[in-house]
């Protein structure tokens, strides 16, 4: 039971990260490889806010989300918008976002040094609960609640709101969206801001969950995020949710029952098997994406 819960907590963070990732991918058909750098940056910035700023972790989360959104706007402006007219805009954006990710990590190294950073010991609430014989901290409950809330909120936004409709219109046909009076640049920038805000919150929650932030944490989650996107079905929000949870559970159980060095092998092996069984992903349509 304890492992199950731990897996769910970890998985919900993966899901949150992957949902931000897949939002830009599914809507704009752009792979933003600066997303993992936002994840890492948010962890360090969150720790600094709490440590130096004296901010409570509860306030740090919305602050980090705001900073993430700003980073998203910068990423769109710097790494994607200048290239959008090119025939190879997808690939070019991918490469330029890798470059930007490298710059963000370099800035983190410059500001925070190469060492692991932690929250101060008294930053976390001491409250714990018993759930079916397992011990759960208030922080873990909060991580799960925040992740679920954000994912539900995002799904609602995309499915039901005016902005969500515009995002889907831009996803399907930017030219048609323009003709309808939609400011495609603005919707694109907003999508990046939302995506990065989610990635940033995921980074802060991840750092809280394991009480540490490392420069390599972005790179570590990057592949997982990509795997979750693919397994969930390219661009599918519920797919990213389920994929993230599965990955979190698989990792925790692999560590518990097989050994920690088997973690990635088991987790990725399972995702791989899923793809063999369902090549289009859990929630993907059979239709091939149009290029």
């Amino acid at each position: 039971m304890q492992q199950l819960l731990n897996g769910v907590f970890l998985g919900s963070i993966y899901a949150l990260f992957a949902i931000g990732f897949t939002l830009v991918f599914g809507i704009l058909d752009r792979l933003n490889l600066a997303h993992p750098a936002v994840f890492a940056a948010a962890a360090f910035i969150g720790i600094e806010l709490v440590t130096l700023g004296g901010v409570s972790i509860w306030l740090a989360i919305p602050l980090v989300a705001g900073i993430g959104a700003l980073l998203g706007l910068v990423i769109e402006r710097v790494a994607f918008r200048p290239l959008r007219g090119r025939p190879d805009a997808h690939f070019a954006g991918l490469i330029s976002s890798i470059g930007l990710a490298g710059m963000i990590i370099a800035l983190l190294l410059w500001r925070y040094g190469p060492d692991t950073r932690r929250f101060p010991a008294d930053a976390f609430p001491a409250t714990t609960f018993e759930v079916a014989g397992a011990r759960v901290t208030l922080l873990q409950v909060a991580i799960l609640a925040i992740s679920i809330l954000l994912m539900v909120g995002l799904t609602w936004l995309v499915a039901r709101t005016r902005l969500g409709r515009a995002m889907r219109a831009v996803a399907e046909n930017p030219r048609a969206a323009t003709v309808l009076g939609i400011d495609v640049d603005r919707v694109t920038a907003t999508t990046f801001a939302l995506s990065s805000a989610l990635g940033a919150v995921a980074g802060a929650l991840f750092a809280m969950n394991v009480n540490s932030a490392q420069l390599g944490m972005g790179a570590a989650i990057e592949l997982k995020g990509l795997a979750v996107i693919i397994v969930g079905g390219m661009g599918s929000l519920p797919g990213a949710l389920v994929g993230g949870l599965l990955l979190g559970l698989a990792e925790v159980f692999a560590v518990q029952y097989i050994g920690s060095s088997w973690r990635d092998l088991v987790a990725f092996g399972m995702l791989f098997l899923l793809l063999v069984v369902r090549p289009q992903g859990l929630f993907g349509s059979r239709r091939v994406r149009e290029v």
Binding site: A166, V179, G181, I182
Partner: peptide, 19 residues
Amino acid sequence: RQILASLTIEENLQLGGWH
């Protein structure tokens, strides 16, 4: 025509009234 095939008819009309 350039209708948005993956959106509902109602959503297409709502987008026409975007502004």
